[in-house]
């Protein structure tokens, strides 16, 4: 059979297939959509035949394109959206975090050790703190949490729309930082570690400085409510970045490309979950943390947040709770 006879023989079926593709690609109604997989298989057979018999290039390219179009339509996977969201937060995310417990501990340490170190250093020697925060940083902190700054936060937040502006700022700034921590993990993990250490130092310096020279109550009541979600999300972003960095450094028995791909799959739920946590933190930080509320209530909310997260990450999605 030569190419022309082959085309002649299949013309009708190819036209049907093309018509079906056109309708499906434009999201029109296609009652015969269930025919697609079968038709695609037939096209695949046609393509291999055309290749094997070395029919002319135009025909082979055309069949190749038609198979690609059909493949794109068939291989789309769409589950129920809300079901996916629920199963992500109740099962997939906490499991992913537990699955990387080594990196989890590592990232907490990499963040906490510099923070505690600088906090303690502030007691005896303020030079470290000054070198980390810089002139401007110190001035800002004095303005916000200084001994005489008792009401500046509330005064500012009392302005129309200030809460919204700060909310927007926390969203773009903090989620942006999460993304940066994760993405810089591609530099063999060094980038993620750098961001974690840097944030730890900054964190420790601010707390150390305010503890000794400022009004710690303003700072503590402000950060208590959202601290758990924000800090933990940052550490989880670090984990996600480190997963990619470690995959690059130590691919094991896989090729580096393969290992990166696997790491990407593993770190996806981590970074996505972290971004959601940071978003939640930004809502609290923007609309509630600066409200005038009795300090005890703020501290309680803060502690409840930490306890909830600890329970969430240690218990949620465990096999014995999840029905098969």
């Amino acid at each position: 059979m030569n190419a022309r006879e082959f085309e002649e023989m299949n013309r009708e079926r190819w036209a049907e297939y093309d018509d079906l593709l056109n309708r499906l690609e434009k999201r029109k109604r296609a009652p015969d959509a269930r025919e697609l997989p079968m038709q695609l298989k037939k096209m695949c057979v046609d393509l291999s035949i055309a290749r094997y018999r070395m029919y002319h290039t135009a025909l082979r390219d055309h069949l190749n394109d038609q198979v690609i179009r059909g493949h794109k339509l068939v291989s789309v996977s769409q589950g129920a959206f809300w079901e996916q969201v629920m199963s992500f937060f109740l099962v997939k995310f906490p499991r992913a975090v537990r699955g990387e417990w080594r990196l989890h501990i590592l990232c907490w340490l990499v963040f906490l050790l510099p923070a505690i170190g600088l906090y303690l250093a502030a007691e005896s020697n303020m030079e470290w703190v000054k070198s980390i925060l810089g002139e401007n940083g110190l001035r800002n902190i004095d303005a916000m949490y200084g001994a005489e700054a008792a009401d500046s936060l509330h005064n500012y937040r009392a302005e129309q729309g200030a809460d919204f502006q700060m909310f927007a700022h926390y969203i773009s700034n903090n989620i942006g930082i999460d993304f940066q921590i994760f993405a810089s993990g591609i530099l063999a993990g060094v980038g993620s570690l750098f961001y974690l250490v840097f944030n730890g130092l900054h964190f420790g310096a601010v707390f150390g400085y305010v503890e000794h020279y400022g009004n710690p109550e303003i700072l503590y009541t402000f950060v208590a409510g959202h601290s758990s979600y924000e800090l933990w999300a940052m550490v989880i972003s670090g984990m996600a970045g480190m997963r990619v960095g470690v995959a690059l450094l130590n691919p094991g028995r896989m090729t580096r490309a393969r290992s990166l791909l696997e790491a990407g799959k593993k770190s996806m739920p981590l970074i996505f979950g972290a971004a959601c946590m940071t978003f939640f933190a930004a809502i609290i930080e923007g609309f509630w943390s600066a409200e005038v509320v009795a300090p005890m209530i703020k501290y309680t909310v803060g502690i409840v947040g930490w306890v909830l997260l600890i329970l969430y990450f240690s218990l949620c999605g465990r096999e014995r709770f999840v029905e098969a």
């Binding site: 729309g161 502006q165 773009s172």
Partner: peptide, 20 residues
Amino acid sequence: FVGSNYAMGLYGLLMFILTW
């Protein structure tokens, strides 16, 4: 129309969405 704080906040959000 809406006050500078809302406008600044909105701009921040939009820029975040644009960049990321």
